[in-house]
Amino acid sequence: MSSRLLSRAPQDTPGTWKSYLALTLILLVSAFPVYWMFVIATSTDEAVMSSPPSVIPGSNLMTNLSEVFGMQDVYFTASLINSLIVAVVVTASTLFFCSLAGFAFAKLRFKGNNVLMFVVILTLTVPNQLGVVALYILMGKLGWNGQLLAVIAPGLVSAFGVFYMRQFIAHAIPDELVEAARIDGALTLRIYWTVVVPAIRPALAVLGLLTFVATWNDFQWPLITLNGTDFPTSMVALSDLASGNYVVYRRVLAGAFVATVPLVILLLLGGRQLVRGIMEGALK
């Protein structure tokens, strides 16, 4: 009897009340900083500096928000629009170029296919920070420093995206489908558009989410190239909000909260895809 009980794989073992309790605690810890961001964003200065700290939202949200959006030299409203522009352009371009390249690597025969794919994977391992100084000089020569273009251009395509799309397309689309379309006279781009794109919508959703989140949250490079200009992204604007000799916490966190909300919404809408994307990525 007891050996039958033990012989179950973990996946078949039902969770006990202890597992649910532990998971609930983990969820609370995961959510707490975001919740507390909201609490402080709604508080007055007195509430922020009270002991014990208040954990219940106040009623000062509108005041704090209007202060953040009205602050000189922070360009908070513009920064949100800038972040949106950067994230949307980078995501759209990544989806387009990565699915094209992934399609070519997975389904088209050309000389050097495997070698070039290996090069793509190799580029994945290069720490991007290594080139930051030279990238800044390059952008200076191009005259792009301080412009959104400097943030957009390096993100237009990603090695991870090419790799991810290649893996997905290789599995999701049978070779015969591509061959059949070709025999019927369809050109490569037409096959991409009519056969590949409809079949890879789930992968596009996953890669799109991952790219949008990473781009929206990017901090270091935007800080280097955009700091001190009139075109910050929202992360750079947040660092401006938090800088200076006199920092108003409720204001900083009202800004942080506003910059976080879009991502929480994305998580609520596309959480399932995001989970799947991360879990699939681990296996490949």
Binding site: P33, V34, W36, M37, I40, V213, W216, N217, F219, S234, M235, L238, S239, A242, V252, L253, A256, F257, A259, T260, L263, V264, L266, L267, L274
Partner: peptide, 10 residues
């Protein structure tokens, strides 16, 4: 998904 800038400020 929470921006690292935002969570660090918290």
């Amino acid at each position: 998904v929470t921006p690292v800038a935002a969570s660090t400020l918290v």
